[in-house]
Amino acid sequence: MTEPTPAQLQPLPDDWQRALAVVAHPDDLEYGCSAAIAAWTDAGREVAYVLASRGEAGIDTVDPATCGPLREREQRAGAAAVGVRTVEFLDHRDGVIEYGIGLRRDIAAAIRRHRPELVVTLNHRDTWGGVAWNTPDHVAVGRATLDAAGDAGNRWIFPELTERGLAPWNGVRWVAVAGSSTPTHAVDASAGLERAVASLLEHRAYIEALTDEDPEAYARGFLTSTAEATGQRFGGRPAVAFELFSR
C-alpha cells in the first residue's frame, strides 16, 4: 500500500517587522529555528530573544553557579551570529520552570515591552513526534507563551504591568511553534543555514558535554539533516518548519 504524500508546508507570512522569540534555555533556538531568524534579520526585521532560564542545570559536570554565566555568554554569542542583539533572561530556575501565573506574567511583560507582531516559541506538547518525551521546561514555556500572547493585550489581566508603564499590546498576529510534530508553515533556510551552524557552535561547552562527536560535524549534521527533511515538504528547499497559530 502506498504511503500518503505529506501535505506541503505553506510559506510563513512575512508582512511583519518585529518578532519576539521566547524559549526555556540557551540553545533552544539554535537547535530549532536560527536559520529562519538569520533570514529575517537579513531582511531588516527586528528579532529579540527572551529566555526563561540561564540553562544553569544543563551541564552535569559544571555547577550551576559557573554554568549559568557560561551559558548566558554562549547564548549572546549564538544570537549575534544570526543578527540578534537583544537577549533577555527571566531567571526562572532551570529544570523546574513551572507553568503558571508568574511565568505568564513575565512573558506577557516581555511581549508588552517588545511589541512584536510575531511570537516564536518551542514545542509545548508532551512529546517530540510521539517518540521522545519533551522536558517540563519546554512544555511550560511553550504553553505559557501561547497564553501570554493573549494576556499581553488584555488590560484587566496583570493590571500591575500597566502600573509599571507596560501598556497592553494586542498586536501579536501569530505565534509560531518550532519543533512541532504537526507543522503547517516553513521558512526557507538556504541563506541562513551556515550562520545557523555558526550560531549552534557558539554553544560549544554544552555540545562538548553532550557528545563525543566533533562539535562542527555534530552541529552541521543535525541542522542540515533537519532542514533537508523539512524541505521535502517545502518544494525541495532546506527549510525550518513551524506550527502557526493566528490571533
Rank of each mutant, 00 (worst) to 15 (best):
Pro4Lys: 07
Ala7Gln: 12
Gln8Asp: 14
Gln17Arg: 15
Ala24Cys: 12
His25Trp: 09
Pro26Phe: 09
Asp27Asn: 05
Leu29Thr: 12
Leu29Tyr: 02
Tyr31Asp: 02
Cys33Trp: 00
Cys33Val: 04
Ser34Phe: 14
Ala35Glu: 00
Trp40Asp: 06
Thr41Leu: 10
Thr41Ile: 07
Asp42Gln: 15
Ala48Gly: 15
Val50Gln: 03
Arg54Gly: 14
Arg54Met: 08
Arg54Gln: 12
Thr61Ala: 15
Thr61Pro: 10
Thr66Leu: 14
Thr66Arg: 15
Thr66Pro: 01
Gly68Cys: 07
Pro69Ile: 04
Leu70Cys: 04
Arg71Tyr: 09
Arg73Asn: 10
Gln75Ser: 09
Gln75Val: 05
Arg76Ala: 06
Ala81Pro: 11
Arg85Glu: 15
Val87Lys: 01
Asp94Phe: 06
Tyr99Pro: 08
Tyr99Ser: 09
Tyr99Thr: 01
Gly100Thr: 11
Arg105Met: 15
Asp106Val: 11
Ile107Val: 14
Ala108Glu: 04
Ile111Pro: 09
Ile111Gly: 01
Arg112Thr: 09
His114Tyr: 15
Pro116Ile: 08
Leu118Arg: 05
Val119Ile: 11
Val119His: 06
Asn123His: 15
Gly129Leu: 10
Gly129Arg: 13
Gly130His: 13
Ala132Met: 12
Ala132Ser: 05
Trp133Ile: 13
Thr135Gln: 13
Pro136Gly: 12
Asp137Met: 11
Asp137Glu: 11
His138Trp: 08
Gly142Ala: 06
Arg143His: 03
Arg143Pro: 00
Ala144Pro: 01
Thr145Asn: 06
Ala148Trp: 00
Ala149Lys: 01
Asn154Tyr: 12
Pro159Glu: 12
Leu166Val: 12
Ala167Ser: 14
Gly171Leu: 03
Val172Arg: 00
Arg173Asn: 01
Val175Pro: 05
Ala176Pro: 05
Ser180Phe: 08
Ser181Phe: 02
Pro183Phe: 06
Asp188Met: 07
Ala189Thr: 07
Ser190Trp: 04
Glu194Asp: 15
Ala196Glu: 00
Val197Ala: 02
Ala205Pro: 02
Tyr206Leu: 15
Glu208His: 04
Ala209Tyr: 04
Asp212Gly: 06
Glu213Phe: 01
Asp214Leu: 06
Pro215Trp: 08
Tyr218Asn: 03
Ala219Arg: 01
Arg220Glu: 04
Leu223Phe: 09
Thr224Lys: 08
Gln232Phe: 05
Phe234Tyr: 15
Gly235Arg: 12
Gly236Trp: 07
Arg237Thr: 13
Ala241Val: 02
Glu243Val: 05
Phe245Val: 14
Phe245Met: 13
Phe245Leu: 15
Ser246Ile: 03
Ser246Gly: 14
